[in-house]
Write a protein that binds this DNA or RNA. Structure first.
Lengths: 214, 214
DNA sequence: CAAGAGCATGTAATTATATCA
DNA sequence: ATGATATAATTACATGCTCTT
């Protein structure tokens, strides 16, 4: 019922005459100084089948499965493994190499996404923690203030002073002390600063969606 | 001296016989459930040039520039703009659409990387902040403790009690109070938890590099 | 030094699916 | 529902880099 009319339309796509790569690009006048071509093995038209050099897209599930398993055990691909896989799968060694390159790229992207999610949740937790700490801090300062008043009251109200007490009165009013010197700095991504993003509470809880159009 | 020879290369690569699309995918005996394909315009042979059906990879700088500018002003692409661009550039409307699709994908990836960097620095700053707060908190608790002792000493040493003082003695010993209920939850990426990663200080300052093989 | 292999990255195109007017 | 557009995933290719022979 799903409008899947499969009337013939051919998915081929590419055809390598294997001798035609004419250099002329008719329009699009560019200098085209040198037609130097690199590394263009005999790929394509002498593979195994007499069927003339048809690109075949979409590897089969089995092929993908094996490739995937192989990738799972090791991302790198040495010649030997490549050739073995190629013959096992009935593919070009070139295709196997390309597949691995693309797979690595995909893996990297996915990994970045995962890391982003992880970092995001950690960050949110940290921000919440900061909130909690700040609240607690405020409460403590208040209590300390009360305590000081109490002390003042007690020591003033009765005698003039109380000996053997080295209690200092300058509490709870210390400046925020800079503290951020050098740390694990400047190694990973290019521009990772410790810029004080002055994120007080209630900040930094947005979702990855909105920043699409920016 | 910077290997920036702009020899542009002019390589074509693909050749659409534009009538030959045989469907058979010779070897690779897989089930190949359905060869269904979609939408195969008459592309290629009606562009502007009389040169029959040559696919050229690598759009020219001018073409890319215009596309890029257009993309810059708006990521979406309506029919009208697409057709206009296509004719201005001497490209297929299909190619313009494809270019925009790919461009959006690229943009998204880049954006993710940027967001990761940004989030990372914010996170690091937050962790440092937490450290600072915890230090401060400890110090305050200590001071408060001292104050309590002082109060104890004062109120015990002299009279029995002091009136009009509602000072409570159970300070600085409050439990960490859970606090994380529901918040800005479950909207962006799939799995963003508020899992308490029990990250006390000195944690969470790693770089994006190591997690390659994991 | 040149040639070649492997790899990362960028780009073009295809396939598949979902969505919307 | 039919067609156009969007996204996501794939396949392939080009190119520049590094390292090795």
């Amino acid at each position: 019922m799903n409008s899947e009319v499969d009337e013939q339309m051919a998915l081929i796509s590419e055809y390598y005459p294997d001798g035609i790569y004419s250099q002329f690009v008719p329009e699009q006048g560019v200098a085209s100084t040198k037609p130097r071509r690199r590394r263009r093995k005999n790929k394509g038209c002498e593979g195994g089948d007499g069927a003339a050099a048809l690109r075949k897209r979409k590897l089969s599930d089995e092929q993908v499965n094996l490739l995937e398993r192989s990738f799972g055990s090791e991302h790198k691909l040495e010649s030997e493994r490549k050739d073995r896989l190629a013959s096992e799968l009935g593919l070009d060694a070139r295709q196997v190499a390309v597949w691995f390159q693309n797979r690595r790229a995909r893996w990297k992207t996915k990994k970045l996404e995962e890391e982003y999610s992880k970092l995001k949740s950690e960050h949110d937790a940290a921000v919440l923690d900061k909130c909690r700490l700040q609240t607690e801090l405020l409460k403590l300062k208040e209590q300390l203030h009360e305590a000081e008043k109490e002390i003042q009251r007690l020591s003033d109200g009765f005698s003039s002073n109380s000996p053997c007490s080295s209690f200092s009165m300058e509490v709870a009013m210390d400046p925020p002390q800079p503290f951020l010197g050098e740390f694990g700095m400047g190694l990973g991504l290019e521009h990772v600063f410790y810029a004080s993003h002055h994120d007080n509470c209630a900040h930094g809880l947005m979702e990855w969606d909105s920043l699409y159009y920016m």
